[in-house]
Design a protein around this nucleic acid. Sequence first.
DNA 1: CAGACTGTATTACAGTAGTAGTACAGTAGA
DNA 2: TCTACTGTACTACTACTGTAATACAGTCTG
Lengths: 131, 131
Amino acid sequence: MFRFDLSPSSPTPIYRQIVDQVARAVASGSLQAGDELPSVRAVAQQHVVNPMTVSKAYALLEQQGTIERRRGLGMIVRAGEASALDERLALLQPALDHAAAVSRQLAITPKQAMAALKLTLELPNKVNLDE
Amino acid sequence: MFRFDLSPSSPTPIYRQIVDQVARAVASGSLQAGDELPSVRAVAQQHVVNPMTVSKAYALLEQQGTIERRRGLGMIVRAGEASALDERLALLQPALDHAAAVSRQLAITPKQAMAALKLTLELPNKVNLDE
DNA sequence: CAGACTGTATTACAGTAGTAGTACAGTAGA
DNA sequence: TCTACTGTACTACTACTGTAATACAGTCTG
């Protein structure tokens, strides 16, 4: 069962985080057509958010054709295949653009920024706050 | 004269972007005590935002002791010295954490993500959207 | 059928961010 | 003094995000 990683302190709204994470999971192949997503109530309870917030995200995803909402049954993924690497990289690009802009603003050299990212990427056990 | 790089499409509120960018510029030494910041009206006009939004950011910065607001004269930086590298890296860390989380969600390997960041960092002429 | 789950609808509210427009007060220079 | 800049105050508004509580409708299982 898919697991969301929601960060209330992020400037990105909760519902947006849900939508983005499902989109990414589909792009990466973690989620495939036919997979089930956790129920509105389960997500709301687990992440201590209002069910309507989760429902709003799922409504958007349904609108995009990514999932199908089934009253009484829950959500099912409808999207097709995982994306190629270049498409996935395009989805990563905004985050990289931001990190690059911030490092420039901080007068951090590319080399230093790269070293820091390398550490961040290689510490999967570290609790990373998403978004 | 300091130049802001504001992105209306970012989830980060405009006033927050202003505050963050001044903080980063001070940390990097780009802005030093005694430097002047552009006026509320100039920033508002240039970036097509309401002057009160800019004023709000400046008010926060004054509250933090980073700047001094002078009616009729404009803003002056009051903060002290640039930060050491490790402090600057700490300011970059949230952006790296996010990029790392997104790359994981997209099943992009560390090597691929690093290569993409390298390209992003080395294209200063590219129009990077901040935040 | 009852119970336990599923998603939805509804209403009203609160907080945050941002806005428009106007006027006031302060500063500096001609 | 006038002009052109400076920041602020104020009011009311809009848009967005998220919430609480409740009840309804749908599905499945024992």
